Simulated scan of single mutants.
Amino acid sequence: MKNDPIRIGINPISWSNDDLPSLGGETPLSTALTEGKAIGYEGFELGNKFPKDPAELRDLMAGYGLDVVSGWYSGRAATRSAKEESEAVGAHLRLLAENGCKVMVYGEVADAIQGEPLSLYKRPRFRTDDAWKRYGENLTDFARFTLSHGVRLAYHHHMGAYVESPDDIDRLMAHTGDEVGLLFDSGHTFFGGGDPVAVLDRHIGRICHVHCKDVRPDVVKLARNRHWTFLESVLNGAFTVPGDGVIDFAAIVDRLRAHGYRGWLVVEAEQDPAVAPSYAYADKGYRTLRALLDREPVREVA
């Protein structure tokens, strides 16, 4: 599998949630790594429980026969200059580069409300074309810096942030250079009001990293209608693993393969492990994606 152009990894959020420590906070990292390896995952994205020293991280992961996939960086390019971002990212960028990562998950946290007790409709927005232009230019400059260290910025559109909806993604891509890659997140795309396959098709040339979340549409609908916060939406089960919701992962995998995607599919589904047991759901997510990668792609008839 290591020679496959598309590999399957997982985020430790299935075992313990960095934003909500009450969800699996007591679960040691060793449990996640042992179980993830046993299931068949080839690598993990980073979380708060991983070492921050490059050599220590490399030794830890080698002991489990796992690769480092990538790691989240809390960026503030909406309020800081590219130069300030380049200075701030130094230690994290080294951690990723020295552990063989090709992409860095970029989450815009400036003014974001994903961890705040605020309804999602109160998220920040760029109101003018000029604001989008300035943000895009700044982000592209920063992405040029990370790329000079061998790591491409993978922009994570996210609920409660400046880039949430399909229209936001379109505008981001229009105002940034190719140095800025897109992290396609199926669950956030659906929750943000989009058709995941349509958004994937529109921006497949820029996609450099993929988060595989499924959704429970009835919960998503309640979250919107009742003005839930992002964390309330998570606690109530808006997200789940591939194969447990309604997203067409077969179409997503087929399109990625047809386009020649080379990179990771990362199972990342924020759930309460007391309600959705970590091993069982991580196993279901892996088996769903593995079966899709192992089958012959469906060829459309003209």
Results as ranks from 00 to 15, higher is better:
W132G: 04
Y162L: 12
R216G: 05
R171S: 07
Q114T: 14
A280I: 12
S22L: 11
V215W: 04
A112P: 07
M173T: 12
I10P: 00
A291S: 15
V253W: 05
A77V: 13
K83T: 07
Y279Q: 05
P273C: 04
F190G: 08
A269S: 14
S22W: 13
A276E: 10
L289N: 01
R76H: 10
E45G: 08
A274T: 15
A258F: 09
H149I: 00
P124H: 12
G194Y: 02
D248E: 12
M1E: 15
E179M: 02
I252T: 01
D18A: 02
G75F: 07
V210N: 02
P277L: 06
S165Q: 09
W264T: 01
L231F: 05
V197C: 07
H259C: 01
T176A: 03
A291V: 14
D248V: 09
R255F: 13
H157C: 09
R257H: 08
S278E: 13
T288K: 11
R127C: 11
C212S: 06
D195A: 13
L147H: 03
S16V: 05
K52I: 05
H259Y: 12
L23T: 03
N99C: 04
E56A: 15
E268K: 05
Y286W: 15
T34Y: 04
S148A: 01
T229L: 03
V199K: 03
A97C: 05
A280R: 12
H188S: 06
V197A: 09
R80G: 04
T27N: 11
L153S: 03
A77Y: 15
G237C: 08
P51V: 08
I13Y: 06
A276G: 01
F145N: 01
A88Y: 01
L120D: 03
W228A: 12
V68A: 10
L33F: 08
V180L: 00
D170Y: 08
H92M: 11
K52T: 15
F191A: 14
G136H: 02
G40K: 01
H227A: 13
H203W: 14
R224Q: 10
D53H: 08
G260K: 02
R58Y: 14
A82D: 03
F184R: 01
P5H: 12
R295A: 07
R226N: 04
A77P: 10
A274R: 14
R287N: 13
E179P: 03
H156F: 13
A251M: 00
P277W: 09
G47T: 02
L222V: 15
G115W: 08
P277F: 07
L95C: 02
A88K: 01
V89P: 01
